[in-house]
């Protein structure tokens, strides 16, 4: 064999390896209605954590829908079937994302729901105060009290940290508010985000590590493959602590990581929750995808408070239940915020 032949052999060897990816990895699943349905159903069967909380026979979902699905089933019909399933699961963290539309559970609150909004803010708060992209903070018109709006806990960190450093602004805010006799933290429009950000902020209000929630998570493919109860903990963080009375404002829109924040804060003796029951969806969701390009999301955990009361589907009941009605909103009255200020006036 001459040199040229050997070099050709080398090239052939390289090309042979290069063509074998599919042999090693296997083919993609077929993009057919049956396969898409089977993957969808099986992913829930293996990964979904909240079947024990649902009055739903998941096997019957398969036996009910699968016989009507065949290779001629249209995408729109498949979408209708998936939509029915998603809505029946009634889980805030179960969603379907497709070119035909996005499906979520029926909202826990009406389309017109003023309880989730800050209304007529300048009536209650001094305007023009500082804010950054994750928090807004103002003095109340009654200068004894400070007000912090946290619209979200979203955001990831840099350098592979899960913590978004923009939340460090809480230290500046608490420094500004250190003389205030009371603090209002408004979470009414906060639908969640990254739980690490929520715990990081909550750590500013405790001097010790506190277990604030419990959860079970799926650890195996069988429907009963759950972990033992595990706990979520807040740890002291930041140099600036605040120990005067704190009011958390909540609504049905307060959900996911924001509910974790509420659970953490309500373990503290100086915290009172005022507003409406929270959304009731924590669940640690993950995304999956199907061969037809649709994406869906499902919950892999379920949470309870430290007393064992399940949060999923139930929410956190406030210490003082108040709602802002449409009439209040029309009249420029923020009933929940008013109640919060009134509470602080009485307890300062």
């Amino acid at each position: 064999m001459n040199t040229r032949s050997k070099i050709i052999l080398y090239i052939l060897t390289v090309l042979t390896f290069a063509g074998c990816a599919e042999t090693f990895l296997g083919p993609d699943p077929e993009n057919s209605p049956q396969v898409n349905f089977s993957i969808f159903w099986n992913d829930f069967n293996r990964n979904y954590a909240q079947f024990p909380l649902k009055d739903l026979d998941w096997d019957s979902v398969y036996t009910f829908y699968y016989p009507e699905i065949n290779s001629n089933t249209s995408q729109s019909r498949l979408f209708s079937i998936f939509r029915e399933i998603v809505i029946n699961l009634n889980d805030m963290h179960v969603n379907l994302y497709t070119p035909l539309g996005i499906v979520s559970r029926n909202s826990a609150y009406p389309a017109a729901y003023p309880s989730m909004r800050l209304i007529n803010s300048c009536k209650y708060l001094k305007c023009g105060q500082s804010q950054n992209s994750v928090m807004e903070y103002r003095d109340c018109q009654n200068a004894d009290f400070g007000y912090i709006l946290i619209p979200s806990f979203s955001g990831d960190g840099d350098n592979l940290s899960f913590l978004d450093r923009r939340y460090d602004i809480i230290d500046n805010i608490l420094s500004c508010f250190r003389e205030k006799k009371g603090l209002i933290i408004d979470l009414r429009s906060n639908t969640g985000g990254n739980v690490f950000n929520a715990e990081y902020v909550a750590g500013r209000f405790t001097e010790e590590s506190i277990v604030y929630a419990k959860y079970k998570e799926k650890i195996g493919p069988d429907r009963n493959d759950f972990s033992e109860w595990r706990v979520s903990t807040i740890n002291p963080a930041g140099s600036q602590k605040y120990h005067n009375p704190i009011v958390l404002l909540t609504s049905r829109s307060t959900a996911s990581s924001a509910e974790m924040f509420v659970l953490a804060m309500r373990t503290l003796p100086n915290v009172t929750i005022i507003g409406d029951t929270t959304g009731g969806g924590v669940g640690s969701p993950v995304y999956r995808e199907l061969p037809n390009g649709w994406t869906f999301r499902l919950s892999t955990r379920f949470y309870s408070d430290v007393a064992g009361r399940i949060i999923e589907g139930n929410g956190i009941i406030p210490d003082i239940a108040v709602q802002t009605t449409m009439a209040d909103s029309a009249n420029g009255v923020d009933k929940i915020l008013e109640k919060g200020i009134e509470f602080l006036v009485r307890h300062k």
């Binding site: 990964n47 592979l160 940290s161 899960f162 690490f196 998570e217 595990r230 640690s284 993950v286 892999t300």
Partner: peptide, 22 residues
Amino acid sequence: RRFNANVSEKFDNLDYKENMLM
């Protein structure tokens, strides 16, 4: 696989303010 599912025993005691990978 994922930080928030099925592997929490690997994550529960980590300092999420620091580099998680390390």
